[in-house]
């Protein structure tokens, strides 16, 4: 007899069931029930945001080189377990070729963003030639906790394409997985748990997005939202709720299956720019002319 997998949430590095005790059926392409997924609740969102907040300071303080290595480790783990993800994508209705292509792109994208982790600062930061005697420089800093509505049109590539640039940039995230097809994202949490990604950096919830998105968007300890297009009324509601603490809202309307849909912008749009004025002492009579 086959052992069926239980798909749980991923919060603070743990795999809890939803505190609400609810679940919903996830279907395969052929209409047969595939699994029961957790129907996450408001309380789960709060727990996830709390975990993300708790993890943020030390994640943002890690050396970018270290974040780069961790992201690369994710690519390694995904490569090692790609058969599982290909199989999941096929069950969800993708052709074998399409599933293989998507997983390969996911691995490549992890590697791509791993490489950015210690480089974007040099590109988007600057030293500014102010007129006064100051060393003036602008550097990116992560926005903080970012709420992610994962692409609802893809099971894995959207999730990877949204989450990787956020975390290599030092943000921590609370992700609402593809509601109808959450299993790849949930399976990916096993990769996260074994890739040296600290607990709480990525938190993943499955459930009904019309129930969860407003809670996440209205949460006062979330700094930004990475949204993907869903029902326009729900989008409107989420954006209205996000105003209370002036969350930065980015709507990513892309086909993430395209190889070109990646880039520095996916990192920099979730960075703040901090400018520092550091005094320069004027030393009299010490001109260093040649």
């Amino acid at each position: 007899m086959e052992i069926l997998k239980t798909y749980k949430l991923y919060i603070g590095g743990q795999f809890p069931r939803t505190e609400s005790g609810r679940s919903y059926v996830v279907y395969a392409k052929d209409g047969k029930p595939l699994a029961n997924a957790c129907l996450a609740s408001r309380k789960d969102i709060r727990n996830a945001v709390q975990s993300a907040r708790k993890a943020h300071a030390s994640w943002a303080a890690k050396s970018p080189f270290n974040r780069s290595q961790i992201a690369y480790r994710m690519a390694e783990m995904l490569e090692a377990r790609k058969a599982q993800f290909i199989e999941e994508l096929i069950v969800l209705g993708n052709s074998k070729a399409a599933a293989e292509k998507e997983v390969k792109l996911c691995i490549d994208r992890c590697v791509y963003y791993a490489g950015w982790a210690d480089k974007y600062q040099s590109i988007i930061g600057s030293v500014n030639p102010v007129a006064s005697s100051h060393f003036n420089f602008s550097m990116p800093e992560p926005m903080g906790v970012v709420g992610v509505l994962a692409c609802q049109r893809s099971a894995l590539i959207g999730f990877i394409s949204q989450v990787l640039p956020l975390i290599v940039g030092g943000n921590t995230v609370v992700v609402l997985a593809n509601s109808a097809q959450p299993i790849c994202a949930i399976s990916f949490s096993e990769i996260l748990a074994t890739s040296d990604v600290p607990a709480g950096v990525v938190n993943i919830l499955s459930g009904n997005i019309s129930e969860l998105l407003p809670v996440l968007a209205g949460h006062m300890d979330v700094n930004a939202m990475s949204l993907t297009p869903v029902d326009s009324q729900l989008m409107q509601k989420a954006q209205e709720l996000a105003i209370d603490n002036l969350k930065r809202i980015k709507i990513l309307d892309y086909d993430f299956n395209l190889a070109a849909v990646q880039g520095l912008r996916f990192i920099s749009e979730f960075q703040e720019i901090k400018t520092t004025w550091h005094p320069i002492e004027q030393i009299a009579g010490s001109s260093s002319g040649y």
Partner: peptide, 30 residues
Amino acid sequence: GVVWANTYNKFDPSSPFGGYKESGYGREGG
């Protein structure tokens, strides 16, 4: 968004200015 060390209220066209959190978003300058 701006940190002034041993000075305050300094501005320069080449220096980006703007806030975190509810102080807004986007930068002006530079």
